[in-house]
Design a protein around this nucleic acid. Structure first.
Lengths: 338, 338
DNA sequence: CCCAATATTGACAGCGCTGTCAATTATCAA
DNA sequence: TTGATAATTGACAGCGCTGTCAATATTGGG
C-alpha cells in the first residue's frame, strides 16, 4: 500500500481535489456533509498532505526559523522549547540556525536560508535581535520576524520583552534593604545589550537610595564563569570590601562564589551574592544563588504566537508583549555584616 | 527585481534548464565551458534553487530531523551543534523535534513528521535510540536513520558510540588506585541505558580489584541534582562511611557535593567525588568535579556524516564508529583518608 | 413560485524543479 | 576518413498541491 495523495482522497470521498484541499486547510464554505465525507476518506487512507507540494503551490512552507547567536545552552534550549511549544499545535516545524554574531557573512548566510523560499518567518534572539543590519535585511527581503527581548529599534518588528532594568533595580533595592551599601556590580558581555539594562537598574537603585557607587565597585566581565571569578578577586580586594556583589548573570555569580570560597569569605555572613537568570547552576552550587528568573520559555511562546499571527494576516499591526521577571531568594544573600 | 528562477538562468546562459539543473546538482557530463556559462548566470542573477520545488520533483528535501527525548540541555545542545556542523557544509537544514519518550503517540507523532515526506533522514539520541518500536517503525517507513550512542540492537542502523563502560571502569580503578575501597555508586535514570553501562563498569572494576561492593554502597537516582543529593545523604550515613562516591552523571555528583557541604564533610580530604559527562557545572562548583568527558559533539558530527553518506548511496553497508571518552581530573578527588 | 444574491463546488493551470529518454555532438579505432 | 560508441544536451512530462475563476446549488425576499 503506497502513500495516499490528494487524488486518492478525492476519489474515495467522491469530491474534487479542491474540496479536499479546502477541508485540509480549514477553508470556509464547505458544507458539513462534504467535510465529513472528506474527513472520513482522509482517516481511512491515512492521508498526509505533502508539504513540499504545498509549499510550492501555496508559496509557504510551514517552516519557521530560529536564529540564535551563541548565548548559553540553557537559554537557547529554553527558547527552543518555548518556540516549539507554539509551533507544534499550529503544525509548523522549526529549523534551527545558530549564527556567529560577528561573522561577516551573517547576512548572506541568513538570506540564503530564507531565500531558498522555504521559511515563512524567523525568530530572533539576542544578540541577533539587536543587529540593525540584519533587521533591515530581513525587512528588505520581506521576511516576517519577531524578536525575543530586543533592546533597540522596537518599531521594526513584533517583539516580546521583559523588564531587565526593573528586576535589577528591585534586586539592588532588596540588597540595600538588607543593610548593604557597598554593593559591587559585575557587568556582562558588552554585545549583550540586556546586560546594559541590568547595570542601569543597579545604578538607578543605588542613586535613588542616595548611595553613590564607587568606580571600583564596578567590574566588567564577559558573562563567563571565569570572568566572574576574575572580577570577584578584583572587587574583593577593594578596601573597605563590598558586602554584596550583584553579577549580571548566574555564571559570573557562580564565579564570585568560587572566589569567595577560595578567599575564605563566608557566604552570606560576610558577603552576599546575587545573580541573574536562574539557570540550573544557581541551585546546584553551594550556597544556592539568589537570582532573577526570567520567563524565557513563555517569552519564546508568545513571540512565536505573534509571528504566526502575523503570517496569517499580514495586515495586522505589529504587537508586543511584556512578561515580568521574578526574584528568587536563596541562601547566597543575607543581612549585611555589622 | 524579482527572484530569479531556473528559466531565467537558462535563458541568460543560453542553455536548457536541464543543464542548469545539472550544474546546480553537480551532475557529471557537463562540459566545462557550459558549466562556466551557467555558473556565471547564476552568480549574475543571484539564483537560489527553490527547495520546495526541488523536494517535490526530486523526492528529497535536504532536511534532516533531530529527535531527542529530554536529557539535559547541554547534552541536547551539544548534539545539535555537532549535527549542524555537518549539515551546514552539505547544505542540509535541520528540523528539531523533541519527543516525549513515554508518550503513547510517540510513533504516530514521528511518523507524521516523516511521512509529510519532508525529511530525508533522522538522527536519534538516547533514550529514543533504544526504543525498539520506534526503530522498527522507522525501518518500516524506510526512513534512513542513525543513532548516537545506542546500546541495543546495533544491527538496526548505523551508529556512533562511546565506551561508557570502559570509562567508568577506568574511573573506578583510578579511585581504587588512590587508596579508596569503600566506593559508593549512584546510578541514574533507568530509562537511560548508557547509565546501566556505567554501573557495569564500576562493578567490574571493583570485582577485578577484589572489592565486593556492599549493597548499601549503591543507590539509584534519576539523573537529577536533587536525586544526587538525596542518594548522597543515604550513602553517607552508612557505617563505615564510603570514602568516595562515583555518580553516573555530573548533576547528581553536584548534588553529592552539596550534601557533603551540608554535612560538614571535607572534599576531597574525607570524601572523593567523581561525576560523568563534564557538563559546565562540573567546573562551576566548588571544588571542581573530577569527571569523564564524552565527545558528544564529535559523535553527533560523525553520526550525521554516516547518515548523509547513507542518503547519497543507499546501497552502502551500515557503518559504525566509536569515539573514546576522557577522564578529567579536578579537585573533587584525592587520596583516601587513612 | 420566481429571481437575484450568495454559498458551494469543481476544472484547470501552474508553482519550479528533476527524471526519463531521445537527439545531438564529440571521440576514437580501424 | 568513416562508423560505432560514448559523452553531452535538451524536450517534456510530471511531482502533489493551491489559486483563480467559472459553474452550479442554495437561500431568501417579494
Amino acid at each position: 500500500m503506497t502513500k495516499a495523495i490528494i487524488d486518492d482522497v478525492a476519489e474515495l470521498a467522491g469530491v474534487s481535489i479542491k474540496t479536499v484541499s479546502r477541508v485540509v486547510n480549514n477553508e470556509p464554505n464547505v458544507r458539513p456533509a462534504m467535510r465529513d465525507k472528506v474527513l472520513n476518506a482522509i482517516a481511512q487512507l491515512d492521508y498526509r498532505p505533502n508539504m513540499s507540494a504545498r509549499s510550492l503551490a501555496g508559496n509557504r512552507s510551514y517552516l519557521l526559523g530560529l536564529l540564535y547567536g551563541t548565548p548559553s545552552a540553557h537559554y537557547v534550549l529554553d527558547i527552543q522549547e518555548g518556540v516549539l511549544a507554539t509551533c507544534r499545535p499550529q503544525r509548523y516545524e522549526l529549523i534551527v540556525h545558530p549564527c556567529n554574531h560577528q561573522d561577516a557573512n551573517l547576512i548572506e548566510d541568513i538570506s540564503a536560508l530564507v531565500q531558498n523560499s522555504r521559511i515563512d518567518g524567523v525568530i530572533l534572539t539576542p544578540p541577533l535581535s539587536d543587529n540593525i543590519e540584519l533587521l533591515h535585511a530581513l525587512k528588505q527581503m520581506s521576511v516576517p520576524f519577531v524578536r525575543v527581548a530586543p533592546t533597540l529599534n522596537k518599531e521594526l518588528s513584533a517583539y516580546v520583552e521583559t523588564n531587565d532594568r526593573d528586576a535589577s533595580y528591585e534586586m539592588t533595592c532588596k540588597l540595600i534593604a538588607l543593610g548593604h551599601s557597598r554593593i559591587g556590580f559585575i557587568g556582562g558581555h558588552p554585545d549583550h545589550r540586556a546586560v546594559g539594562l541590568r547595570f542601569e537598574g543597579y545604578q538607578a537603585a543605588m542613586l535613588d537610595n542616595k548611595i553613590r557607587p564607587a568606580a571600583d565597585w564596578i567590574a566588567t566581565g564577559d558573562s563567563s564563569f571565569d570572568s566572574g571569578e576574575r572580577c570577584a578577586h578584583q572587587l574583593l580586594q577593594v578596601e573597605p570590601r563590598p558586602t554584596a556583589i550583584f553579577a549580571a548573570n548566574d555564571e559570573m555569580a557562580a564565579g564570585v562564589i568560587l572566589a569567595a570560597h577560595q578567599m575564605g569569605i563566608d557566604i552570606p555572613a560576610d558577603l552576599s551574592i546575587a545573580g541573574f537568570d536562574d539557570t540550573p547552576v544557581a541551585h546546584q552550587i553551594w550556597p544556592a544563588l539568589t537570582t532573577i528568573r526570567q520567563p524565557i520559555q513563555d517569552m519564546a511562546k508568545n513571540a512565536t504566537e505573534l509571528l504566526i499571527k502575523q503570517l496569517k494576516k499580514s495586515t495586522s499591526p505589529l504587537s508586543a508583549s511584556m512578561l515580568p521577571s521574578l526574584i528568587i531568594t536563596r541562601e547566597s544573600t543575607g543581612r549585611a555584616p555589622q
